[in-house]
């Protein structure tokens, strides 16, 4: 008898009220604010014939912008993985004065508006800027080049990597490290053979998030990048904005569609990493 009641409730799984209401409101708001507008982009871009579409997205400046965005974001994400791992390691494993401040500062790129970051970095790394001046004397031009662009992308991407690795490193059992050490493995060997494999899913997730953010980034890069078609320092978001300003909606939507597909693929990649990871941990 009791078993039946329990079963009934478990089967229905809807003891708590509000399923219909919350489902309705969530779906309605999601559709109105996110899905319908994005669908409009899709519908408009499907009105283009495949030939027109290909023609629009294979224009020289569009291809160059895609290349610039993808390569710079990739480089920035790799650099962030390196420094992000060091930062997360230092913040979790060591105690030192000012640690909390350092930890809080990691969040700065999330909290600082992109336009503010953009103009600041651009000024700082220009030929007259605090960091740009000594670099210029060494013959290295940063602002208005791809180097500057990559620095801005490192700035916006760093918290993604640190925040992805930190929780994993915190939970990592030091038993493995100790075991490896007792078995005679060197410090570096322990890191690469024992710790790094544990960090890999988090590292990939952080990489994916920073990479995706970098490809779509607009505010923080447009001031420092120089936006010159000739020098290939235009990023893809800048090209979309340019097309919008020229009321060239066909090009803008065609490029946007390619970007949407790209970010969808990255999202899929991150999800796969996470699903793979949860399967692995559940088996143990």
């Amino acid at each position: 008898m009791i078993k039946q009641i329990v079963k009934k409730y478990i089967r229905k799984d809807k003891v708590i009220p509000g399923f219909g209401l919350t489902m309705g409101i969530s779906l309605l708001m999601l559709s109105l604010i996110i899905l319908l507008p994005l669908l409009s982009v899709l519908v408009f871009s499907f009105q283009l014939s495949p030939a027109e579409f290909l023609d629009l997205i294979t224009k020289d400046n569009v291809v160059n912008a895609f290349q610039t965005s993808i390569i710079s974001s990739f480089l920035a994400a790799i650099i962030n993985c390196l420094f992000g791992t060091i930062l997360a390691w230092v913040l979790i494993k060591y105690e030192f004065p000012g640690k909390r401040v350092l930890d809080g500062l990691i969040e700065l790129p999330f909290a600082l508006p992109t336009a503010v970051a953009g103009i600041t970095l651009s000024k700082l790394y220009s030929d007259t800027g605090l960091i740009g001046k000594p670099l210029a004397q060494l013959g290295l031009k940063v602002s208005y080049t791809k180097i500057g662009l990559t620095i801005a992308l490192i700035f916006v991407g760093i918290p993604f990597v640190v925040r992805a690795i930190q929780p994993v490193l915190e939970k990592l059992d030091s038993q493995y490290e100790e075991a490896a050490y007792i078995l005679g493995a060197s410090k570096t060997r322990t890191f690469f053979k024992v710790i790094l494999p544990e960090l890999r899913p988090a590292l990939l997730t952080g990489f994916g998030l920073a990479f995706a953010r970098g490809i779509g980034e607009y505010g923080s890069v447009i001031y420092i990048a120089g936006n010159s078609a000739k020098e290939k320092t235009q990023v893809i978001s800048y090209v979309i904005m340019q097309k919008l300003n020229y009321v060239d909606y066909a090009s803008a939507t065609a490029i946007a569609l390619v970007m949407l597909i790209l970010s969808f693929l990255i999202l899929l990649f991150i999800n796969m990493v996470q699903i793979h990871q949860s399967r692995r941990t559940n088996h143990i």
Binding site: L35, P37, R213, G216, S237, I240, L267
Partner: peptide, 23 residues
């Protein structure tokens, strides 16, 4: 559903602007 909610995290804000213009 939870993936759809996260869409704005992963797309360029410029595309968000474009989407409202196209709507």
């Amino acid at each position: 559903l939870s993936t759809l909610i996260d869409i704005p995290f992963s797309i360029s804000p410029v595309i968000a602007g474009l989407a409202f213009i196209m709507t």
